[in-house]
Design a protein around this nucleic acid. Structure first.
Lengths: 229, 229
DNA sequence: TCCGAGCGTCACATAAGTGTCATGCACCAC
DNA sequence: GTGGTGCATGACACTTATGTGACGCTCGGA
């Protein structure tokens, strides 16, 4: 379950950038171009976190904030304000607009995602915590442990990283090259077929105890964590 | 199938970096080291997008831009300018050089690819979109799955590419030669009739479950994805 | 130093997909 | 109708891609 982030930002370029980067960081992103649209989107589906520009057409960020806080279902939803330099009045700094945190533009994407994670950890730790889930498979990064249906699954370091990576985007097919890059590192000189072998080992470990194979082979394309069908 | 990006950049190191990253992002990349070479490469094969350095030996980026805009086949090809800080004159900012967008060096690779995707989406959405739809048929590139009316359709790699290509322009008739080029690659020596066979297989797979044949045979012309009429 | 866990390769078995062909039907022009 | 060309399709021999057990190597800990 990816954290669902709503980006309310009128600058098209920045919004695209945010969209792209957050998606890459494993968030599901929805965009709104102004405050009004933002409030509508929130009604459709309550986000796990809202990225809110301070200056917005139609309904300002501050006002959106106020309204969100007035609704019971978003009262506790973390809000991260985006402000331009100079807009950081004491009001923003003190966060008494109702926002939980803010960043000043221009900001490094890494700072933003760090703050997002920090906020999410506070409110919905299961979303960003060192833990990934797919079906009955649970991968805990902190303890470096994997269980399936409660039973412990023993994996070597490589298989662990491989599963971690696959679990970040279940259903998506990754080529051997991509997996090589992600799991072994971008400058490794290893046979591509080695990926097969490790996928095989991972499969074997996950099948242990009579479970179904959760990895799908897509001929001439790669592998994905996914139902066979 | 993959979007074709031409990188016109004289700095070897940056060009290599771009090449590597864009390739990883699923683009097919061709490089040119100066404006002159760039213009030649464009003649060989029209790119889907051009990454153009502002400062180039022999023919400057601006000039290349101008010439590209003068040619009918590249008039609408998106151009993304790479400029060094300080070169961002008002001219660049206003994009009245004919470029569609620009990034200032040094830039984050993620920003660049986001902008590239944004431009391609504007001009050729079928190249970057993750999923293609035609009637009740859905082709998802990310998970490499095809469904019809919700039911999974199993396709071999060739049939998958074939359907992908047909779905990019439903209703349009493609000759066997064209399909051969697009699906098998431009330098394949295979009987043209082989196309028939694969179309047949694709049809069979898509008809599975009592569905209608979505492919139309145009006698002595080729095939197209659309209603029989 | 010895040992076992992991890793990367290989070789071989198996499965899946591919290209051709032969055959028969469909369609079009007379 | 009729002849001829184009197309659909099942069979099949052949390639290629993938699954897997075995093996030798490395490395860290006992």
């Amino acid at each position: 379950m990816k954290p669902f982030v709503l980006v309310v930002e009128d600058e098209e370029a920045l919004a695209t950038l945010l969209d792209y980067n957050l998606d890459k960081e494993g968030f599901r992103v929805e965009r709104a171009a102004d405050g009004e649209e933002g409030l509508l989107k929130v009604e459709e589906e309550t986000p796990d976190l809202i990225l809110l520009d301070w200056m917005l057409p139609k309904v300002s960020g501050v006002e959106v904030c106020r309204q969100l806080r007035a609704r019971p279902e978003t009262r506790r939803t973390p809000i991260l304000m985006l402000t331009a330099r100079g807009e950081e009045s004491d009001k923003v700094r003190g966060l008494d607009t109702g926002a939980d945190d803010y960043v000043v533009k221009p900001f490094a994407m890494s700072e933003l995602t760090a703050r997002i994670r920090a906020l999410l950890r506070r409110t919905r730790p299961e979303l960003v915590d060192e833990r990934l889930e797919y079906a009955d498979i649970i991968l805990d990064r902190g303890s470096r442990r994997v269980t399936r249906s409660g039973r412990n699954v023993h994996l070597g370091p490589t298989e662990f990283r491989l599963l971690d990576f696959l679990m970040q985007r279940p259903g998506r097919v990754f080529s051997r090259e991509r997996l090589m890059d992600a799991v072994w590192g971008p400058n490794t000189y290893v046979e591509l077929r080695t990926v097969d072998v490790h996928v095989g080992r991972l499969r074997k470990a996950l099948r242990d105890g009579g479970h179904e194979d959760p990895i799908r082979t897509v001929r001439s394309a790669g592998y994905s964590l996914d139902q066979q069908a």
